[in-house]
Simulated assay, not measured.
Amino acid sequence: MRSAFDFSPLYRSTIGFDRLPGLLESVARLDESSLGYPPYNIEKQDEESYRITMAVAGFAEGDLDIQVRGQTLVVSGRMGDDGDDRTYLHRGIAGRAFQRSFEIADHVKVTGARLENGLLHIDLVRELPEEMKPRRIEIGTGPAFKQVTDGTKKAA
């Protein structure tokens, strides 16, 4: 499927955002009926850590599955059949199966998950490699320096 948007002007001033068109297309393909269940929050706890909290009342730990597939976090739930022969006059607690996906950025890792009082908490942290952290580049004067393969600098 071809996108109706032309992203080529964006590529003139950005580097490394090759996945942007694909992400935008995946958002456009979302099924509107599944957007509301189960409800969730995404919180930024500090500069490098995040938490996704999902309301999964009625689900046990064994009914939930959390997987990371590439850059996608997939949370799914399917209630086990307990041979429930109850007759409900009203059933307002949704126990239907679900699957919710979250696109996670590069270098974001899932560090843990816990189920507490009907809420599933998934903790994430961004771990930038040392080579990707901001660094200061010194501007030299005088004779030009030449980078040598062992990392030392020598005057040219």
Rank of each mutant, 00 (worst) to 15 (best):
R126K: 15
G140Y: 05
A144T: 14
E127I: 13
V125I: 09
E116H: 12
F145H: 11
K133T: 06
D123Q: 01
G142R: 05
P143G: 07
G118T: 10
L124S: 03
I122W: 07
L115F: 08
P129N: 00
I139N: 04
N117V: 09
R114P: 02
I137A: 09
L124E: 05
P129E: 00
L115Q: 06
R135F: 05
P134L: 03
R114I: 07
A113L: 02
G140Q: 02
K133F: 01
L119M: 09
M132F: 12
T111A: 01
E138S: 09
G140S: 11
A113P: 08
A113S: 15
I137S: 07
P134N: 05
K133G: 01
G142Y: 13
N117A: 15
G112L: 03
G112A: 07
G118I: 10
I137E: 04
K146W: 11
E116D: 15
E130S: 06
L124P: 05
G118H: 05
I122P: 06
N117L: 04
T141L: 09
T111Y: 03
E130D: 11
L124V: 12
K146P: 03
R114Y: 10
R135M: 02
L120M: 09
P143C: 08
M132C: 10
L128F: 14
V125M: 01
T141M: 06
L115H: 07
E131R: 01
E116T: 15
E130L: 04
L124Q: 05
Q147W: 06
F145I: 14
F145K: 09
M132R: 06
N117H: 10
V125C: 01
A113M: 08
L115I: 11
L115C: 09
A144L: 12
R135D: 00
R136P: 00
E127V: 15
N117Y: 04
N117D: 15
Q147M: 13
Q147G: 05
A113F: 14
E130F: 04
V125W: 00
E138N: 08
A144C: 03
R136V: 04
H121Y: 13
K133H: 01
K146H: 14
R126G: 02
E138C: 01
N117R: 08
N117G: 13
E130H: 01
K133R: 15
F145C: 05
K146T: 15
M132I: 03
E116P: 02
M132T: 03
K133P: 02
K133A: 03
E131G: 02
K133E: 09
K133C: 04
L128T: 08
E116I: 14
K146E: 14
L119F: 11
L119H: 12
E138A: 12
R135A: 08
P143D: 13
R135E: 00
G118N: 02
R136E: 08
R126C: 13
E131T: 03
I137G: 04
A113H: 15
P129M: 01
G118C: 07
I139V: 15
E130M: 01
V125Q: 05
R114F: 12
E138L: 10
L128C: 06
E131S: 09
F145V: 15
L115V: 13
T111E: 05
N117S: 14
R114G: 12
T141G: 11
E116K: 13
